[in-house]
Amino acid sequence: MNETQLYLNDVHKSFDGFKAIDGLSLAIARGELRAVVGPNGAGKTTMLDIVTGKTRPDSGRVVWGADTDLTRLDEADCARLGIGRKFQKPTVFETLSVEDNVMLALAGDRGIVAGLRHRRTARQSARIGEVLDIVGLGAERGRLAGALSHGQKQWLEIGMLLAQEPQLLLVDEPAAGMTDHETMRTAELLRTVAGAHSVLVIEHDMDFVRALDCKVTVLNRGSVLAEGSLDHVSANPEVIEVYLGR
């Protein structure tokens, strides 16, 4: 449980002089659920970009598991290692059916030949059904993903993330566009998933973060400002100053 899944050490990244990430260090244990909060421009999304191989840091170490260097890998490599990501804006394949969306996400060979020879097995169909039931889209199985509501797309994307069976889930503002009830269900879902998987959630919604009931990291100006339970960081005057106090 205490084994480290992801470790960032003194990471820097600037865009034309703007220091998006400035000396960020962070460690996520295997099976841990972690919430990351911070004002706009604190570097939350850039941090996810770096972890998923989309952006290369200027300096610093990003280590996966025991000794895999993530800074040298691209998105597909990182995904294959077991890092799953949900975007801030729900991103699904709009012109494919809901079940095909999940099918593409299912763990398995990502190669071209496999793609051409692929036949869907009964087990895969069952797994798709399972995932869709978890996210409450069992009835929408045959619909085009583009026809779903905003909230449903959020759920579908979370379902795809689950189907991918990653070791680490990076979830960027999942509650955006959801009803209160849905928000609470999402929090519950993420809590269930944690343990078997590591989960890192970025969120603005404080009720949601409270519902997650986990360790919270506050980012500001590209580095960690405070870390601890929500009550602990809420009491930190600096945090109140930059974030909560507004």
């Binding site: 995904a79 990501r85 593409l104 051409l116």
Partner: peptide, 28 residues
């Protein structure tokens, strides 16, 4: 009509999503 074709459509509609699912978009 194959899963390969679905991945292609995925690339067309949301290229980065396909990448983050672990598909080598450039190979496809």
């Amino acid at each position: 009509g194959s899963k390969f074709g679905m991945v292609l459509v995925g690339v067309r509609d949301a290229e980065s999503r396909t990448r983050f699912l672990g598909y080598r978009v450039e190979h496809y």
